[in-house]
Computed example of a mutant assay.
Amino acid sequence: MRAIGIHEPGTPDALQVVDLPQPAVAEGEVRIRVHAAAVNPTDTLLRSGQRDLSRQPRPLIPGMDVAGILEEIGPGTETPLRVGDAVMAIVVPRGAHGAYAEQVVVPAESVAAAPRDTSHLEASTLPMNGLTARLALDTLGLPSGSVIAVTGAAGAMGGYAVQLAKADGLTVVADAAAKDQELVAGLGADVVLPRGEGFADRVRERFPDGVDGAVDGAMLHAAVAPAVRDGGTVITIRGYDEPGERGVRFQPILVADYAREQQKLDTLRQQAEDGLVSLRVAASLPKEQAPEAHRRLEAGGVRGRLVLNF
């Protein structure tokens, strides 16, 4: 089968078409014929060598989101899905096992039916970012009626965090550039404030005691802490866990912890069908144009997800 991978980290042009053997399917696993793979910031980190890959076999195949058709179910595997179903899955990329491939084999718990009446392109945007947002909110554990701040709200993960927080009964204050304010308000944010420097001060003007917690998709880190009440928690997505002041805690999360939370992925499927979460495709590119997709993503300003078409 063909995949898109790298032999050594580098610029987007390090991505190239590679040939790999068809992966075997063991007990507890399923094989998916990939039709679409979303492109995420974590893919660019892997490709550029910003993570320790010294022990990883080559080629390295990026990608954490796929959608396609279920082709094979491993022996003795229990799953409500059937061969031929349209599915979506989260993929944990290790060595040649990433989402940028014509076929992937993943644990059955990493797969759910694709949302009804959606394309493969749309479905591929949901698993990794949706589960990251779900994990962030579950880690905060705020009761209904609490107030949460979301930074990076116009992005894919931030957008899901806004929508899922609203579905959980939370009041959401979010950041947005001027060009994205309508978008973020449309996602359901109760209060939309200008992004960047001074965001925390603007939050305090609206909520003098501070919000109950925050999901820091924009990676403001210490700069967002003043928006949070004493003893509150800020969820971070790139490992930031420096000590905070006033008892504010920075809590990093790793979506791999939810990679086998099939019920949570299926709940996201239902929420997409119910219109509670939006599947946003920024653009679709042929798999051979993966370098261009990475260049566009690293240039910034992408709203929704770039998707590679397999």
Rank of each mutant, 00 (worst) to 15 (best):
Arg2Pro: 02
Ala3Met: 10
Gly5Ala: 03
Glu8Val: 03
Pro12Trp: 14
Gln22Val: 10
Ala26Arg: 15
Gly28Leu: 02
Gly28Met: 06
Val30Cys: 15
Ile32Gly: 13
Ala38Lys: 10
Val39Phe: 12
Pro41Arg: 08
Arg55Glu: 07
Pro57Gln: 06
Arg58Ser: 04
Pro62Lys: 05
Asp65Met: 08
Gly68Val: 01
Glu78Leu: 12
Ala86Gln: 13
Val87Cys: 09
Met88Phe: 06
Ala89His: 11
Gly95Leu: 08
Gly98Pro: 01
Val104Ala: 09
Pro107Asn: 10
Glu109Ile: 00
Pro115Arg: 01
Thr125Asp: 05
Pro127Tyr: 10
Pro127His: 08
Leu131Met: 14
Thr132Leu: 01
Thr139Leu: 12
Leu140Trp: 07
Gly145His: 08
Tyr160Lys: 10
Lys166Ile: 00
Asp168Pro: 09
Asp168Met: 14
Val173Thr: 13
Glu182Ala: 14
Glu182Gly: 15
Val184Gln: 09
Leu187Ser: 07
Val191Pro: 05
Arg195Phe: 03
Asp209Ile: 00
Ala214Val: 06
Asp216Cys: 12
Ala218Glu: 08
His221Trp: 13
Gly232Met: 06
Thr236Ile: 03
Gly244Leu: 07
Gly244Trp: 08
Arg249Ser: 13
Ile253His: 08
Asp257Gly: 09
Glu261Met: 07
Val277Ile: 14
Ser284Trp: 02
Leu285Ser: 00
Glu288Ser: 13
His294Asn: 04
His294Arg: 07
Gly304Ile: 01
Asn309Lys: 07
